[in-house]
Simulated scan of single mutants.
Amino acid sequence: MVRVPFRGRAARIGAEADDEETRALVAGEASAAAAETEVPPAPEPDLTGAAFFDVDNTMMMGASIFWFARGLAAREYFTGRDVASFVWQQAKFRIAGTERSVDMHTVRDNALAFVAGRSVQEISAAGEEIYDELMADRIWPGTRMLAQRHLDAGQRVWLVTATPVELAKVIAHRLGLTGALGTVAEVVDGRYTGRLVGEMMHGESKAQAVRALADRERLDLSRCTAYSDSSNDLPMLSLVGTSVAVNPDSDLRAIARSRGWTVKDFRTGRKAARIGVPTVGAAALSGGVVGGLVALRRRNRWPF
């Protein structure tokens, strides 16, 4: 039998301990790495509950259609005068608040005149670019978090907006939402005619669209939630089991308080909340729209 010197045995035992420690360390690091890369389990789908979000001033700061039009104007799709005319029509529509107060036929017929003759593919591609350039940074983080909570609970989330449905779908896709209901433009041979199919997605039309979607998807509206900033959306808000006023105008704030609805205000200033002017109107009157158009005029030297 070969006797191992004491020092030799100690060295060997130490080496074995080092090896075990190394193996344990490597195993621990591997486990930690696996834990870091492990994808959390998907939530159980909630097949009967869903959430519906308005876009302008609810999901996004300002009016999505204005930023879209401004992006198209920067690409010389039309003149600054066209933008100004379009924005003024939209502002009258939003400020008036009721279909009886404005010429709805004029608003409807001119709502998408600025894309007449353009291909759907072209406008959709422009919408992707314009979202990145002008809209992505204007998403309210607080509202985005509210939408994510519904997704995390396994519910589907739709945008419901007067914005053209193609643009609404771009926004929904970029936010990881289920889909969007929006104003539908007439298309012939792959090109927009500038006319609408049916009415603008506004007021009662939103409620009708949500009701039709609920029937198709077999949703229980009493388990659904709707979010909006405007009293114009009362038909949709009153349709669901839970209603939330987000950055509300003065009328909706008062209604929410009287009905016990939750109010979420993500604006830093309280002046807008007190005034409560609807989105496009507020932008036009406060100089947001005017300032943007003036900037475009100066840069492109448009005569308006």
Rank of each mutant, 00 (worst) to 15 (best):
T106D: 15
R81Y: 10
F52T: 03
S31C: 04
F114L: 02
L47S: 07
R100W: 08
D54L: 06
E76Q: 10
L112W: 04
A91I: 10
I95G: 01
S124Y: 09
G97C: 04
A50E: 03
V102F: 06
F86K: 05
V55Y: 05
G117L: 03
A73N: 08
V26A: 13
E99Q: 08
G14I: 06
E16M: 15
L72F: 06
S101Q: 07
H105Y: 12
G28S: 09
W67G: 00
A91K: 04
E38K: 05
D19C: 02
I95H: 10
A11P: 04
A96Y: 09
M61I: 13
T37E: 14
L47F: 13
G28E: 01
E29F: 14
F52P: 12
G97F: 00
L47G: 09
A69N: 12
V55E: 02
T106L: 13
D103R: 07
I65P: 05
I123P: 02
A113H: 11
T58V: 13
S64Q: 11
G71Y: 11
A116K: 09
T106R: 12
V107A: 07
D46V: 13
G62H: 00
E44W: 01
D19Y: 09
D109M: 07
S85Q: 08
L112M: 11
T106P: 01
F78H: 11
E20I: 05
V26M: 12
G71E: 12
E36D: 11
R94K: 11
V107T: 03
Y77H: 11
A125S: 15
G117K: 08
L47A: 07
D109T: 11
A63C: 14
A63Q: 11
E38P: 06
N57R: 03
S101W: 01
V87D: 05
A63V: 13
T106I: 10
R70E: 14
D54Y: 09
V120N: 08
T58M: 04
E21P: 00
E122A: 05
A35P: 09
I65L: 11
V115T: 14
N57P: 07
G14Y: 12
A111M: 14
I123D: 00
F93A: 04
V120Y: 06
R9L: 13
A15Y: 02
E21F: 11
A74P: 00
A126F: 01
G49T: 11
A74H: 05
P41H: 03
K92H: 07
I13W: 12
A111Y: 13
G127L: 01
